[in-house]
């Protein structure tokens, strides 16, 4: 199992963000999480990325209990959100070198250069990130996520603010990751992008899983449109 969660709950003060999420994701699966704003999908993803501690529940990443060995679990996770977590005053190479050292990546310089080529930033590799457009920024963000070759890739609204080119690059890298046997969990508003390559789709509402279906099954599409229209799933 790439990810196993047992009855994950998270409350912020009196607000219940997650009201018990139990989920198993197999290795190599591509899972798309849908839901409206505040439904709890980002919170779930952040808990999976060990950024947020659940109020209750157990979570295992690649069989590693997150509470017992958080560092080991983090080593296997790549997390990309709307924010890229890159230092604006550093160049792409410096940014990647820093994160690569934190993760203890082997043959770091080679890895950095091949990634920078892959995301198409060769010509900007020595400019401070400050001068980058949103699309370029996110490309480098993708490179940061792939840097330590994570086996579980978590993506929180990765398509937000991307130009068509960057969307293509991202999709291409996700396809490659899938064929390399990696597990992907993605949240998005965008049904088409979400279902494009996903194998399973889940709808989260008010902190609970309300629908699970095969991503290629037309019924999933219907369930989603009904959820968006009237707020409930079949």
């Amino acid at each position: 199992m790439a990810l196993e969660s047992e009855d994950i709950r998270k409350t912020f003060g009196y607000f219940t963000a997650l009201g018990g999420v139990t989920l198993k994701v197999k290795r190599g699966e591509f899972l798309a999480l849908f839901g409206r704003n505040g439904a709890g999908k980002t919170t779930f993803l952040k808990i999976a990325a060990t950024l947020v501690k659940p109020t209750q529940g157990r979570l295992r990443i690649e069989g590693i209990d997150v509470r017992e060995q958080p560092e080991e679990a983090r080593r296997r996770i790549g997390f990309l959100s709307h924010n890229t977590y890159l230092y604006r005053d550093l160049t792409p190479i410096e940014n990647l070198r820093f994160f690569g050292r934190l993760y203890g990546v082997q043959d770091l310089d080679e890895r950095i250069h091949s990634l920078i080529d892959r995301v198409g930033l060769q010509r900007r590799a020595s400019d401070p990130v400050r001068s980058f457009s949103r699309g370029l920024h996110q490309r480098l963000g993708v490179a940061r996520v792939m840097l330590h070759d994570p086996s579980l890739i978590l993506l929180d609204e990765p398509y937000t603010g991307l130009d068509a080119n960057a969307v293509d690059t991202l999709n291409q890298m996700l396809d490659e990751a899938i064929s390399a046997g990696k597990t992907i969990i993605l949240t998005t508003h965008d049904l088409e992008q979400g279902l494009r390559a996903a194998s399973r789709a889940i709808i989260i509402d008010r902190g609970k899983i309300v629908f699970t279906g095969d991503a290629r099954d037309p019924a999933t599409r219907d369930a989603y449109s009904q959820y968006i229209r009237v707020g409930v799933t079949p």
Partner: peptide, 18 residues
């Protein structure tokens, strides 16, 4: 301020260091 800018602190928290 440098770590808060662009949420870099979160990036540090994702890294496999305690």
């Amino acid at each position: 301020a440098m770590e808060i800018d662009n949420d870099c602190l979160q990036g540090l928290l994702l890294a496999p260091i305690s």
